[in-house]
Each structure stands twice: as structure tokens, then as C-alpha cells.
Computed example of a mutant assay.
Amino acid sequence: MEEIRHFLEGHKALALGGAVVGGAVVGALGVLGWTAFHKNDAGPLTPPVDPSSFTKKNHVYLLIPPRLGAVPSISPFCVKLETWFRMANIPYEVVETMSPSPSKQTFPYIYLNGEETADSRFIIEKCAQRFGKRLDNHLTEMEKAIFVAYSHMIEEHFVITYAWHRYTLGADTFWKNFMPYERLGPMGKRMAGAREFMRKGIQERAWLRGIGRHSPEEIYRLAEEDLQSLSTYLGNREFFFGREPSVIDCTLFAHLCQLLCLDVDFPPKKKLQSEWKNLADYVQRIKIRFYPDWNLVCSPKANGTDNRN
């Protein structure tokens, strides 16, 4: 996740190649990718990004890690941003790469008119201003305050709970289904080292955040409290604040689809089909309305333009 760059900054040996995907440190992926790009004995997973090829004026080039299936990206922050482009009806072009942002060493990032911008929050601000597309104009001041609070809960707390599970207790299922080495080109079995690095990375980050000091049962309880709060607030509304989508819908959808669409046995997920079914229905509504090409978008190598156009 984006804020974990602070963790990477404290580990200078990883900083050059550090990247973040799916709410956990994937510095190993960045390091291995960096190595593949710069050693003669291994070809690159994807070519290094050449910004000079992004020549279209007022055209968004969205750079994300390679798609692996089931969801548009295993990084919720990439899904959040792609969903925002669709909700705001801004055409974009996906570029799959293992090279993280030059400025912040994170995903996602964009190039627009030759300028790189990283971090989904700042990308949305930049593009909203550039294209005059602000999804939150209809919100009241109270709703804007609630938006800030829930955004931080989802992106700074909830994500740690399920990322911790994904890369520790749920790692066998995740790596088998969504990180098969044969899909990752010449890096091949060297990715096995990334798995252990990622496990240690998320455990250390979760420990520093305080969440990792708890038992698995306690961590799941924290996740359930977040989901219960979200379900209660959403109620029977179409979107988080009513009939019109806003940025919080991009955020919530991006994280919920990580639970509902990825086959990783995260225990709180079971209640999304019973007690909090309104959250599952909410995800389905957004998929239908903004991702009519969901299966195509989620497919490996589904890069190119926004496939609705």
C-alpha cells in the first residue's frame, strides 16, 4: 500500500526496487524486477518504462503491475484509481510494468502530458483539476468529513488486516492461484524468494502499526468491526453517500473486491454473504455499472485502452 513507502525508506537496500501491491510490501518484486532489468543473465519481466513513448496530449497513461486475474489488480490502490477514471468518464490507457514510480517507488502512477504523478490520492486530485471531473462536488461538509474518516480507516487500518492474512496464513492459496511463477516470464522461480520476503515485510509492517501484535483471531475481529461499520453506514443506499458515486466508492469497492473476488480464505469474508450482504451487493452493482468488461479487464495482459470505448 502507498503509505508503506515509509517502511521502505527505512530499508535503504530495498528502496530502489521497492514497490507496493495489494496492501503489502512487495519490495522483493521490485528488487527482482530491478535485477532482471540490469543483469545480462536474465531478461526483463516487462521492459523498463520509457516515458518518451507516451506522446498523446491530454491522455492518461496508467502504470500498474501486471494483471494476474480475478481482479483488475491485486493492489487495491490500482483498482481504486482505475475505478475513479471510469466513474469520472476519463479515458485512460493501461501500461503493465514491474517498474514502480520513479518519484515515490509505488504503484499506481500515471504519465499525463509528459509529467509523472504517483499515489492514487494525488493522481485523482491532479486529474480532477485537469479534466474538470470532481466526483465529490455533491457532498455536504459533513459527508466530506465522514469521507476522510472512512478513507483512513480503509486505507490505513482495514487493509493491514487482510493483507496480513493474504501473505501469512493465506499465502499458500494466494501464491498458488494468483502469483504462478510461469506467468511471470524470465524471473521464474526466483519469485519464490519474494514470497518469504513479502511475508516478513507485511509482518514487520503490521507489527509496527500495532495490528501485528495481536492473535489471528483478534486481527480478524478488528477487520469485522471495520466491515460492520461500513455495512451499517451504507445501509440500502446505492452508493456510499446516496444515488451518486464519489471517491469513497472507488476506495471501498477496490478493497472489498480483494476479499470477494480473490479466492483467499479470509475468515471475515464469510459474513459478507450473510450479515453484511449489502456490501457484496454493492460490489456487484459497481461491477455491472462501471466494469461491463470485468472479465477482460481482469485477464492477464488486458492492457491497452479503457475497453468500454
Score class of each variant (00 low, 15 high):
residue 179 M to W: 11
residue 182 E to L: 15
residue 189 K to Q: 14
residue 161 T to R: 04
residue 193 G to D: 09
residue 160 I to R: 04
residue 157 H to C: 00
residue 160 I to V: 14
residue 175 W to L: 11
residue 182 E to G: 10
residue 191 M to W: 14
residue 167 Y to C: 05
residue 190 R to K: 12
residue 162 Y to I: 03
residue 154 I to L: 12
residue 187 M to K: 04
residue 174 F to W: 00
residue 155 E to Q: 09
residue 195 R to H: 13
residue 159 V to P: 00
residue 167 Y to D: 00
residue 187 M to Y: 05
residue 183 R to Q: 13
residue 187 M to L: 14
residue 179 M to V: 15
residue 183 R to E: 07
residue 190 R to L: 15
residue 165 H to V: 00
residue 165 H to I: 07
residue 166 R to P: 07
residue 159 V to R: 05
residue 167 Y to R: 04
residue 154 I to H: 03
residue 193 G to T: 10
residue 155 E to T: 08
residue 194 A to N: 06
residue 159 V to T: 13
residue 173 T to M: 09
residue 184 L to W: 10
residue 182 E to C: 13
residue 161 T to K: 06
residue 173 T to V: 13
residue 170 G to R: 08
residue 156 E to T: 01
residue 193 G to P: 07
residue 178 F to N: 01
residue 169 L to V: 06
residue 178 F to A: 01
residue 188 G to F: 03
residue 184 L to C: 04
residue 180 P to G: 03
residue 189 K to F: 13
residue 188 G to C: 07
residue 156 E to F: 07
residue 161 T to G: 00
residue 167 Y to I: 01
residue 161 T to I: 00
residue 171 A to G: 11
residue 194 A to E: 01
residue 179 M to H: 09
residue 190 R to T: 08
residue 169 L to M: 13
residue 174 F to P: 01
residue 157 H to N: 03
residue 177 N to C: 03
residue 179 M to L: 14
residue 175 W to S: 08
residue 159 V to G: 07
residue 158 F to P: 02
residue 180 P to C: 06
residue 181 Y to T: 15
residue 163 A to L: 02
residue 156 E to L: 01
residue 164 W to S: 04
residue 178 F to K: 04
residue 157 H to D: 01
residue 152 H to P: 03
residue 176 K to E: 09
residue 155 E to D: 09
residue 178 F to T: 01
residue 152 H to E: 09
residue 153 M to A: 08
residue 183 R to V: 10
residue 182 E to M: 15
residue 171 A to R: 12
residue 157 H to M: 01
residue 169 L to K: 07
residue 158 F to D: 00
residue 192 A to R: 11
residue 195 R to I: 13
residue 160 I to T: 13
residue 184 L to T: 02
residue 152 H to F: 06
residue 185 G to W: 08
residue 170 G to Y: 08
residue 181 Y to H: 13
residue 159 V to E: 07
residue 184 L to Q: 02
residue 170 G to F: 07
residue 191 M to Y: 15
residue 155 E to F: 04
residue 179 M to T: 08
residue 192 A to L: 14
residue 166 R to G: 02
residue 194 A to V: 04
residue 184 L to K: 03
residue 195 R to A: 11
residue 191 M to S: 15
residue 186 P to E: 11
residue 178 F to Q: 03
residue 162 Y to K: 02
residue 154 I to Q: 01
residue 172 D to L: 13
residue 190 R to P: 02
residue 190 R to G: 12
residue 182 E to F: 14
residue 158 F to T: 07
residue 157 H to R: 08
residue 169 L to I: 09
